[in-house]
């Protein structure tokens, strides 16, 4: 099945229906493996046991940006290629992205209190992630405000692309400004600086979170297609009743 075939919502629903159970099973297996590896991993020489928060904080932070990246590509799909599923993909991703961003903020605060002595600091990394969270909420509100899906799709796509400026700001904020947040320690030109005993559980948890995102996103897209079908049938019924 090619990507063009999936532009047909009916074919996409059949494809998603087949894939979701496999992805859900893989998510469970990866989380089980990841949690065992986290339990067996050593404490950090500086952070102590608190380093275990990193195994959920870092993947949530990555996914908060990855989800917005998916929405940005979908926005291009809406505006440039007018792909029928592009707005469906963006709209379905927003609540998931908002949740992962909220989780990154909460777990970051819970790590920050014992390590930095504060739950919150208005520094570049934390503030730019908070802006990302607000962007997600704003987009969800925008989609809900505009009833016509076509108009809503274009408005949301423009706002998503404007907001995508925030992604490099989040990524490089720790290099561009003085911040409490530590610099990148995994995705570096000279390789990760984390010990393998901690890198393996982190990578497994990151993979588990990513497959969870894929599962939830496919399921949410399927729901969004059904929602639009119900809306179309409702309009048909209303037109016939006149």
């Amino acid at each position: 099945m090619s990507l063009a075939d999936l532009a047909n919502p009916t074919r996409f629903l059949a494809f998603a229906g087949r894939l979701i159970p496999w992805l859900a099973s893989l998510t469970v297996v990866l989380f089980a493996t990841g949690l065992v590896l986290v339990a067996r991993s050593p404490a950090d020489y500086l952070q102590g046991e608190t380093v275990r928060i990193m195994y959920i904080h870092v993947p949530s932070a990555w996914l908060s940006m990855l989800t917005y990246g998916i929405m940005a590509v979908s926005a291009l799909g809406t505006l440039v290629w007018r792909h029928p599923l592009a707005d469906v993909a963006a709209r379905a991703a927003a609540p998931i992205g908002a949740t992962f961003t909220a989780l990154a903020l909460v777990t970051g605060s819970l790590w920050g209190r014992p390590m930095w002595g504060t739950y919150w600091e208005w520094d570049a990394r934390l503030t730019s992630v908070l802006v990302l969270f607000i962007m997600y909420l704003g987009l969800i509100a925008l989609w809900r405000t505009i009833e016509d899906p076509t108009r809503g799709a274009r408005a949301a796509a423009i706002l998503i692309l404007v907001g995508s400026v925030n992604l490099p700001i989040i990524k490089f904020s720790v290099d561009w400004w003085n911040t409490l947040h530590q610099p990148a320690s995994v995705f570096r030109i000279d390789g990760p600086t984390i010990d393998a005993t901690m890198l393996l559980p982190l990578a497994t948890m990151a993979l588990a979170f990513t497959v969870l995102l894929a599962t939830l996103h496919l399921a949410a897209m399927r729901n969004e297609i059904l929602r639009r079908r119900i809306r179309a049938l409702g309009l048909t019924a209303a037109g016939a009743a006149r």
């Binding site: 046991e49 608190t50 275990r52 959920i56 949530s60 992962f100 909220a102 909460v106 819970l110 939830l216």
Partner: peptide
């Protein structure tokens, strides 16, 4: 889990809540 066990457990509870909620 050491003196900050509450912070660690709260983090994992938040992650569980988020995943199950979604």
């Amino acid at each position: 889990l050491g003196p900050y066990a509450n912070f660690i457990l709260l983090s994992y509870a938040a992650a569980t809540l988020a995943a199950l909620g979604l």
